Simulated assay, not measured.
Amino acid sequence: MRVLAIDTALANCAAAVLDDGSDSACFEAFGEEIGRGHAERLMDMIGEVMAETSTAFSDLDRVVVTIGPGSFTGLRVGLAVARGFGLVLGKPVVGITTLAAIARASAPRDGGAPLLVALTGKGDEVYCQEFDSSGEKTGEASVRTISDLAATMPKCIRLAGSAAERVASELDLPGEQIISRAGFPGIRDVAELGLLADPVTASPSPLYLRPPDATPQTRGRIERQ
């Protein structure tokens, strides 16, 4: 199966083509930590990975895209492009969470203590999810405060993600329990999860764990009678 993977959810902007076939295996990726400006860079990256792997869009079996947690603007860019390709090509589009992709890269796979992937949120909040040592989810993604995690997480928990250091400090955990401080997923992990995902359940819909900060403007509004 040959997939195009796209990640614009966080600070990174990345695209990759991955094929797991025995006779057609290939992997090519381009990525850059840019913070903002995903819309300006993404299509060039897609063109580069498609050219480097000699892949025509008709060769793709599916499109994979990160769905969050992440930046509202960044998510919209990746999802719009992925859905557009899926519609034009008539190919399935699958969504992968940033938390799951980071867990895939960080999981020790030693049968030991569980893993909490935690990404920096607003103020005292983190976007987080628990996984077992193999990287399989054992809880749902949520937004929680550092103090809440400190009160509920077991002392054996291992940590990954951009908020790992902060959570470890609050829980008074030793540094060796921090497996990764990654602030965004690796595009290969996104692509590999996309190969395994079920298009029926892995919807390319944004994962928003908290409401937007913006509120509808009311000043100057004319009430309808």
Rank of each mutant, 00 (worst) to 15 (best):
V117E: 01
E170H: 13
F131A: 14
A150I: 08
A118F: 02
Q129R: 11
S162E: 04
K122G: 05
D172M: 13
P108I: 08
Y127R: 09
V167Y: 05
P108L: 07
D124P: 06
S106Q: 03
I96T: 03
G135Y: 06
G111P: 05
E165S: 15
L99T: 08
I157P: 00
R104C: 03
A100V: 06
S142R: 15
Q129T: 03
E176H: 14
C128E: 05
V117Q: 01
C156D: 15
A113Y: 02
A160L: 05
T98I: 09
I96A: 09
G135V: 06
A118H: 04
I102M: 04
P114A: 09
L115G: 06
V143M: 07
T138I: 14
V126L: 08
L115P: 01
S169Q: 15
L149N: 05
I96D: 04
A164F: 00
A107L: 02
A150G: 05
F131P: 11
C128F: 03
Y127E: 08
V117K: 01
L171Q: 11
E130Q: 14
A150N: 06
R158P: 00
A105Y: 01
G175W: 09
A164Y: 00
T138V: 14
E136R: 14
R166Y: 06
I96H: 01
Q129I: 02
A105V: 11
L119S: 01
G112I: 09
I102K: 06
V117G: 01
E140Q: 14
K137F: 08
E130N: 13
S147I: 14
A151P: 02
C128T: 09
A150F: 09
T152G: 07
V143S: 13
T97F: 05
A141K: 10
P154L: 12
G135P: 01
D132I: 02
L115M: 07
A113K: 05
T97A: 03
S106C: 07
G121C: 08
R104P: 00
Q177P: 00
G111E: 11
L171K: 10
T97W: 04
L115Q: 02
P114Q: 06
E165C: 13
R144F: 03
A105G: 13
L116T: 08
A151D: 08
A118Y: 03
D148A: 15
A151R: 14
R109D: 13
A151G: 02
G123W: 08
G123K: 13
A150K: 10
V143G: 04
D148F: 11
S134C: 12
A103N: 03
V126F: 02
I146H: 05
A151Q: 11
C156N: 11
S142C: 12
P174Q: 12
A168W: 00
E140I: 10
G175P: 04
A150V: 10
G121N: 03
D148N: 11
T98Q: 04
D124R: 11
P108T: 11
T152K: 12
S133Y: 02
S169M: 13
I157V: 15
M153N: 02
K137D: 10
I157Y: 03
S133G: 03
T120C: 12
P108V: 07
A141C: 10
L159R: 01
T145K: 11
T152M: 12
T98G: 03
R109Q: 15
L159A: 04
D172I: 10
L173Q: 01
L171T: 09
L171S: 06
L115S: 04
Y127S: 10
E125W: 11
D110R: 12
L159G: 00
S162T: 07
L116Q: 07
